[in-house]
Every structure is written in C-alpha cells, then in structure tokens.
Amino acid sequence: MGLMDQVELPKPVKYVFNWGRKYSLWCFNFGLACCAIEFIAASTSRHDFIRHGVIPFAHGPRQADLLVVSGTLTDKMAPAVKRLYDEMPEPKYVISFGSCSNCGGPYWDSYSVTKGVDQIIPVDVYVPGCPPRPEALLDGIMKLQDRIQGESLKDRIAAVRRDPANIGAEAGMALDAQSLHTAAPAELGSGG
C-alpha cells in the first residue's frame, strides 16, 4: 500500500496488475433478503460466475475484495453492514444488488428500511431489478471488471483518503506511507 498510493505504476505493470485483480475477486455475499437467493443461483452451476473469476468463498470480510449487498437493508442491520465494510482491506469494491439496496425498492415508504445502501457505504456498481436475474449480476460483475481494468490504484487510494469518513484513518496511513517511502525506488526498479 505504501508504494501504490505514491507512484503511478507504469502502464504495462498496471495492465497486468489490474488484469490479475479483476479476475480474482474474492467475494463476500452479504445476503439479506430475496436477492441473496438469486446470488446463490448465480454462483451455482447454470450461471456460474466463478468462470468470471469471482470466488464466492471468502470466509469473512477480511479476506474479501468485493462486497455484494443483496437485499433489503434495514435500520437495525445498517451498523453491521458499515462495520463489515470497514473490515475489508483496500482496494475494495461494492456491488449493490437489487432495488432494495439501491434505493429502498418496494419499501420506499417504510419506517424501518434504509433507502439505499449507498447512504452508508460507497457503491461501485448498481444492479437494478426486484430481484435482478442472475444474468444481471453477471453483467454487473463484468462492468466492475471493466472498471478495475481501467483504474489507477493511486487515484483510487487518493479518493478514499479524501472521503470525509476516512479522515480519522488518514493519520495512521500517512505515517505508514512515510516509513515505506525510502524503500520505494528499489521496488519501483524491480517492478519496472
């Protein structure tokens, strides 16, 4: 992490690096409601998103790159989702799967439903539908992979730092970056 956020990687390195990341997305399914069933359907033999490099066997958020929030998020559950998201290591991605986690869906007027998971965590890809078909999830995953392929890790980490929610964490990370700064040229040399 110390290097990635300091230097823009050379293009071929970045290409290979992003190619590797996009096809090994360890996925943590935060299955909340109906959409979780369609998520399981997408992971089983007929739709099978493992062929796209999505591995749904992350045992917890600490091992995961991708969080799929599938289903209705209630106010009672929201702190748990926030906590799980915070436990995930950077770089991390979130797919909001289904209308409920996009915007509240059929429960837009409910007194106990959080109207969209993006109110508490940042979302990369929204998959619409109630529930969306497994094919829609596959499409969402491919959209996310395109995004990962074209992305600069430096910019992404900088964006995360700018997020007001992470101001507190910044001090620790900056220190970390500084201590590794001396090692940076050597690593760059071997990387290039």
Binding site: T72, T74, K76, M77, Y107, D109, S110, S112, V113
Partner: peptide, 11 residues
C-alpha cells in the same frame, strides 16, 4: 430477530 423487519403490515 427484527434485522429484516420491513414493516409489511403498515405498508
């Protein structure tokens, strides 16, 4: 329980 309470009866 109650983590999935969506208020069906009110809606």
């Amino acid at each position: 329980i109650g983590y999935m309470h969506r208020g069906f009866e009110k809606l």
